[in-house]
């Protein structure tokens, strides 16, 4: 039998005591048929339509949920009370004893609206509380494969605490530190505050790459950037950064995303990469 378990946002109590049973004997989700099209999660990889990120051996990861380990029977969980509905953090739906579907419940998904229900009878409801179910779910854990599938990491960071370690976004201090490197020359009042999310994500990747380079690698990488983006080179042989776009090019360069097609005709940037093992 399928069960829907809710995790509540409560200040008091152990993690385990925050789960409530919402519903049973319903089928909210269906297992997507395209789960086979998955790529191992990597912040440098963008998904195509119909693709999923996957994390295998999920139970060995530090952000594995105790709920998935402990879940045996729904009778262990207390019934959700009506007054607690606005405290729901996320829903975990167990189907066929093997598939766990996770959905974050944000304030926007908890509809507290005046509703007219259309059906056999038209009914008006002045202050209904409804939860909008997203199919496919934000994350799907298949126990027999011990694999977590998801499309957007930011949607599930609230569910799996610590999973955001996989996705680093540079903090303001880190961004400032990066922009202060002596190979960068800021112009046009460009500063750390002007760096938006996409570039912060790339800065985190670039910092990691830079730290792993030796001097030879560094000069090779910088020379490639100069070759592909001559407009970035300043008179004193540093990179002048005037805009987000300039910064993005430099960061792509550091992450070695520039390439030329094998026939030598076209220069390209890989905005998403998958490592060939």
């Amino acid at each position: 039998m399928n069960h829907v378990i809710a995790k509540l946002r409560l200040k008091k109590g152990s993690e385990n005591s925050k789960f409530r049973k919402v519903l049973s004997n319903v089928t909210l989700y269906s297992l997507p048929s395209d789960l086979n099209n998955n790529v191992v999660y990597n912040p440098a990889t963008n998904l195509d339509e119909g693709e999923w990120y996957s994390i295998s051996e999920f139970s060995q990861k530090p952000f594995y949920l105790q709920l998935l380990e402990d879940y045996e029977d729904s009778v262990a969980y207390n019934q959700l009370e009506a007054a607690q509905t606005s405290n729901i953090d996320y829903l975990c739906t167990c189907q066929n004893g093997n598939e766990f579907y996770f959905q974050r419940i944000s304030k926007t998904q908890l509809l507290e609206k005046k509703l007219i229900t259309l059906g056999d009878q038209f009914t008006y409801n002045a202050n209904s509380k409804n939860i909008v179910i997203n199919d496919p779910a934000d994350a799907i854990y298949v126990k027999s494969e011990d694999t977590l599938y998801f499309k957007k990491l930011s949607a599930i960071t609230g569910i799996f605490k610590g999973i955001d370690e996989l996705f680093k976004e540079a903090t303001t201090t880190e961004t400032e530190a990066f922009l202060a490197h002596d190979f960068i020359k800021l112009e046009n009042n460009f500063c750390a505050a002007s760096v938006k999310q996409a570039n912060r994500k790339r800065i985190a990747l670039a910092m990691e790459a830079l730290n792993s380079f030796d001097n030879v690698q560094k000069s090779t990488v910088f020379n490639t950037v100069k070759e592909y983006c001559p407009q970035l080179v300043a008179e004193d042989d540093t990179f002048k950064i005037e805009s987000e776009n300039d910064l993005a090019l430099l960061l792509y360069g550091i992450d070695q995303r520039f390439y030329t097609t094998p026939d030598g005709r076209e220069k390209r940037i890989a905005n998403s990469i998958i490592r060939i093992v």
Binding site: M1, H3, L23, S24, D73, S74, V75
Partner: peptide, 8 residues
């Protein structure tokens, strides 16, 4: 009443 099950 609401459904439940014990499958283990």
């Amino acid at each position: 009443l609401s459904y439940d099950s014990i499958e283990k």
